[in-house]
């Protein structure tokens, strides 16, 4: 079962910026234990562009699709046998990256 683990940061109360070494070490462990599928940090939401091509012509707009205090700062994709395993890892992940995380299964 694959789970998307979204890292959620808060513009008014951001997590600390010195977490990269700890996150790298955690990723190494995820790989060694067979949970790791993918991981990536995202650039600032200012760098986002939304494209809507459902109509006659594509409409581009600057910025994220949702302007909010909380935003997606990065993602992991994990392979885990069940939600308990994913939640246990996510509990560690939240501590390590000093941010909230959301665990959501793929279909």
């Amino acid at each position: 079962m694959q789970y998307l683990v979204s890292v959620i940061d808060d513009k008014s109360n951001p997590g600390s910026t010195d977490r990269q070494p700890a996150i790298s070490a955690f990723n190494q462990r995820l790989i060694a234990e067979g949970y790791w599928v993918f991981a990536g940090g995202l650039a600032d939401t200012n760098a986002a562009t939304v494209i809507d091509n459902r109509g006659e012509q594509a409409v581009l707009s600057d910025g994220p699709f949702l302007e909010s205090k909380e935003y997606l700062a990065g993602v992991w994709v994990w392979e885990a046998p069940d939600l308990d395993v994913a939640l246990k890892l996510a509990t560690e992940a939240s501590k390590i990256c000093d941010r909230k995380v959301e665990v959501r299964p793929f279909q």
């Binding site: 079962m1 046998p81 939600l83 308990d84 665990v103 959501r104 299964p105």
Partner: peptide, 14 residues
């Protein structure tokens, strides 16, 4: 079902 919440008694630790 979708999130696969396991059907078991938690480990002694939990």
């Amino acid at each position: 079902k979708t999130a696969r919440i396991p059907y078991r008694v938690p480990s002694a630790e939990d």
